[in-house]
């Protein structure tokens, strides 16, 4: 990134503002649109979707079951009804197509909160804070499943900010706002990308689906990279970019790392059009990175 310029400035110059925000705008439309679909029911008695992200029933036809919720039920030794089982199959197939953690960046309402915290953190120039391994979330995921199995109750659901926020918006917040505020302040002051990038077990569970998913960020033009670092600055999971961008240990020009959220922000901010969405198959290396 050029000194004094915010990430994406070069891309705006090269592609225009709209071109440098295409995926961001689409993503916000997806997040808010999905939320709105859930909200027009209670607001206007227009029941397109009933339920919440845990389980929803669309137009009395399409069941969708959250994969992590389903997993927790199974661990608590509960077998749901057929509709919920159909719902989880549809959902997993969908995320196998679009990328597991696409849930995080295109659907999850907490992402709006943590993205805002991250944006504000950068704007205010807040640096440093606590350090924690990004693997912590896998430990938390394991812990929630073990605790659920041992206690026989859905332990994580007592505190899960993801379901708390979504359910709160649709059915009434109560003190859920305090939990969401805590997540916001944590991301703002304590740890950059703290919640989504280090702690949330829901995200990494979707990441496990994403290991095998089809839609990927590819780097067909990685040779054109001018090391402006804008993609690193905006990426919510920075560690996923470098191997594919710099061909570390012969990594092909495709991000196969499970924690890539397919948010597409790297595509937006790259003035050299290094990145693009594509299928995981048929990777053709159109160029080696410029040796430094």
């Amino acid at each position: 990134m050029s000194a004094g310029l915010r990430p994406g400035a070069e891309a705006i110059a090269a592609k225009g503002w709209l071109g440098a925000h295409k995926w961001l705008i689409l993503r916000r439309m997806s997040q808010l649109g999905i939320l709105l679909l859930f909200l027009v029911g209670p607001w206007f008695k227009l029941w397109i979707v009933k339920g919440n992200l845990n389980y929803s029933y669309t137009l009395d036809f399409l069941p969708l079951t959250d994969a992590f919720q389903f997993m927790q039920l199974l661990v608590a030794r509960q077998i749901p009804q057929t509709l919920a089982i159909i719902g989880v199959v549809i959902l997993v197939l969908f995320y196998l197509l679009v990328g597991g953690r696409a849930y995080c960046s295109w659907v999850c309402p907490v992402n709006l909160v943590t993205d805002f915290a991250g944006w504000l953190r950068a704007r205010l120039g807040i640096k440093g804070g606590a350090h924690l391994s990004r693997r912590t979330r896998y430990w938390i995921l394991g812990m929630t499943l073990v605790a659920t199995a041992l206690s026989g109750t859905l332990v994580w659901e007592m505190v899960n900010p993801v379901t708390m926020l979504h359910r709160g918006l649709i059915f009434g917040m109560g003190f859920a706002w305090a939990v969401i505020l805590a997540v916001f302040l944590f991301d703002l002051f304590v740890m950059r990308q703290g919640w989504c990038g280090h702690l949330c077990p829901v995200g990494v569970f979707y990441g496990l689906i994403g290991k095998f998913s089809l839609l990927r960020v590819k780097l067909p033009q990685r040779a054109a990279c001018n090391d402006c670092m804008d993609c690193f600055a905006v990426c919510p999971e920075q560690q996923v970019i470098r191997p594919a961008l710099k061909a570390i240990k012969g990594t092909p020009p495709i991000i196969l790392e499970e924690n890539c959220t397919n948010c597409g922000r790297c595509i937006d901010v790259c003035s050299k059009n290094v990145f693009s969405f594509g299928a995981r198959f048929g990777v053709a290396d159109t160029g080696s990175p410029v040796p430094k």
């Binding site: 029911g41 339920g51 859905l154």
Partner: peptide, 15 residues
């Protein structure tokens, strides 16, 4: 105890 393990907290019963 079983209820709190089996309920998926979707609110469809509410609806």
């Amino acid at each position: 105890t079983e209820f709190s393990a089996a309920c998926i907290r979707c609110g469809l019963c509410v609806r």
